[in-house]
Design a protein around this nucleic acid. Structure first.
Lengths: 208, 208
DNA sequence: CTATTTTTTGACCATGCGGTCAGAAAATGA
DNA sequence: TCATTTTCTGACCGCATGGTCAAAAAATAG
């Protein structure tokens, strides 16, 4: 039996183990996105994968580890997508714009991941009821936005404002795409992103 | 047995029934806010109220009706608080500011309600897994913001932008208070609200 | 081919859930 | 006071869940 988070000892994971874990995580994302975390039982995920329920327990310590993998994958993919696009910019305004546009773009191309993530966010709890994912899980992303904002103020590009409040607001604005997405599946992501970029450009810049 | 949503026939609800329903709803809000919707069993809610579990089934058709009552109360209270404050304003800018400030103020004074509501929002599902509260439940509030924005554009106060995107962004910005709230329980709501008011004033106004 | 290890199966378990119900207790009314 | 209705209790039910396990099957190695 494997099922450790880190492959122990010399050997890594077997080929089968790696493939199964990836398959199970992928199926978990699909199922959670479709029926919600609360309804996404191990039995249902196993059925989707065409395997027996016990296989999940064999490859993962428990449901918790599986869900954590789903979360990790979403964050890792998202960061890998947006970070280089932001870092390619030179001005703070361009960085902020790139952050907004690339994040929205990521949401568009990874709907299932993000729907699953947002559902897990509020439903994934410790046994005593405390949330497993709270504000601190969001912190890195908010902080990276805040960094851009501070840089902009220092460089004289941006006016004075609370970088904290503005960072949270930007993050929330980008997340707001979902609200529209649920109601209008054919939402024009590009147009939406452009509106946001313009709005926050105006809201942050110094010029009068 | 009562347990209809509307009191049927001539008679309304008895004194006891009214009091019990209110008590149970209040306890449900507390428990959900503390341990989350998923952990908030009827048994736990009953225990909090100091009554037997069967009493809840006696006064409510089922858990669904109870949760719906919680949701209704939160919306009703919120609307009753913000609406008059917005309608007291004359300019669109003032209305938008009043909306932001009064909503944040409501959140501050009704933390348990709002925490419970946001948790229910994502966990409250039909038996087949479809969300019971989707974007459409938020629509009235977003629409009322959109109305303010359209009025501002018509009156020449506001620049051109998608009223839809801006309305959703404002709503999300206000909701963002929670993210801070979880990490900083001693958050300065007033300062936060003032930052938002300034930001969206700049983001929407026409003057150059 | 045979022996050993890895992987999978499907039945099984304990737990906690929402909901039900017969009967006790309390309130009400004549 | 006594009869009737309302309200409440606590045991109980069926069900779905996450998790376990002995044994079968498949892969791997000698």
């Amino acid at each position: 039996m494997r099922s450790e988070n880190e492959p122990v000892g010399q050997e890594g994971r077997s080929f089968i183990e790696t493939a199964r874990r990836a398959q199970i995580v992928a199926c978990a994302i699909e199922v959670i996105a479709e029926v919600g975390y609360a309804q996404a039982s191990l039995a249902l995920i196993a059925k989707r994968a065409g395997i027996s329920k016990g296989v999940i327990s064999y490859h993962f310590k428990g449901k918790d580890e599986l869900i954590q993998q789903v979360v990790d994958e979403a964050f890792t993919l998202g960061d890998a997508f947006t970070r280089p696009r932001v870092e390619a910019q030179t001005t703070a305004a361009a960085m902020l714009g790139a952050y907004i546009e690339s994040t929205v773009e990521f949401y568009r191309t990874h709907r299932a991941h993000m729907i699953a993530l947002s559902d897990i966010w509020s439903a994934f709890r410790h046994t005593d009821g405390r949330p497993r994912l709270d504000m601190s899980a969001n912190e890195p992303e908010v902080s990276s936005v805040e960094e851009i904002l501070r840089f902009g103020q220092l460089a004289g590009e941006f006016r004075e404002f609370s970088t904290r409040v503005m960072a949270v607001t930007v993050k929330q604005a980008v997340d707001g795409v979902f609200i529209q997405l649920a109601a209008h599946p054919d939402l024009d992501f590009d147009a939406y992103a452009r509106e946001l970029v313009t709005t926050f450009d105006i809201a942050t810049r110094k010029e009068r």
